[in-house]
């Protein structure tokens, strides 16, 4: 490619994909946003995804030994109410599906923290056929804690780092899921098969809330659109093969 060649510009994206620059905001807007970010950083409702061994480090972090409620971190029990998803250890291919379903049910701004080596590179399960090696290929991750297992002190430190990041308005990994949904969906489909889909319509959410980017739609979301035309009225030959994914239509 020579320097004189123009990079193709995508022009068919809707107007809402343009994100306002920080300078464009009015002063009131900036003050409001800073205040909201500060409140977000001081109030983290945590959903524990406790299928890994890291779950054992959370009770001392939450209860009287280290008491994370001092900085506003408190446990919640449903993804709808939670801000922060803690993936405590290794994920198998099967549990990753549940993580993605839970993650898509959470309301933005939402944050993900991966616990321990297993979420970073597979850890001690690196050569297993059934475990997921890198979590951030499938959902956007804000922070990792290295170690096998990280002590509560390390968990506290990552909470404090995440709070500083949220307060500065820099914890925006959740926007990446909207902006590059096609790539995430493609990697999920690599693992789960071509008929993988979730109940949440992420593309529609991205359009509604104005987070459409160049990577939001693509060849993989086209497969979802194709599947959306299927209904219970259509002839059974068009249904996807059963058994590969528990959410396939009967």
């Amino acid at each position: 490619m020579t320097g004189s060649e123009k990079v193709p510009v995508v022009t068919d994206q809707p107007e809402t994909c343009r994100v306002a620059d920080a300078e464009e905001k009015s002063l009131l807007r900036k003050v409001m946003d800073n205040f909201a970010d500060h409140c977000r950083s001081r109030s983290l409702f945590v959903l524990h995804y406790c299928t890994g061994c890291g779950a054992i480090e959370l009770p001392p972090t939450i209860t009287s030994r280290f008491d994370m409620e001092r900085v506003g971190v408190s446990p919640m029990v449903t993804p709808r109410q939670a801000d922060l998803l803690l993936i405590t250890g290794y994920l198998s291919v099967k549990t990753l599906k549940r993580v993605i379903l839970s993650y898509e049910q959470m309301q933005a701004p939402k944050y993900v923290v991966g616990f321990g080596s297993c979420t970073i590179n597979g850890g001690m399960y690196w050569n297993s056929y059934a475990t997921v090696k890198r979590l951030d290929q499938y959902i956007p991750v804000d922070s990792y804690i290295a170690g096998c297992m990280p002590r509560p002190e390390a968990i506290q430190q990552v909470f404090l780092d995440l709070m500083a990041k949220i307060d500065a308005g820099k914890a925006t990994a959740w926007q990446d899921y909207y902006l590059n949904y096609d790539a995430y969906l493609g990697r999920q489909m690599n693992l789960f098969g071509q008929d993988w889909h979730t109940p949440t319509d992420v593309v529609a959410e991205a359009k509604h809330y104005g987070y459409v980017g160049n990577g939001t739609t693509g060849e993989h979301t086209a497969l979802l659109d194709q599947r959306a035309t299927w209904s219970l009225d259509t002839v059974p030959e068009l249904y996807p093969a059963r058994g590969r994914n528990e959410r396939s239509r009967p």
Partner: peptide, 9 residues
């Protein structure tokens, strides 16, 4: 404030 400042619902 945090809950009312959520960006999606």
């Amino acid at each position: 404030v945090k809950l009312y400042a959520k960006k999606t619902q």
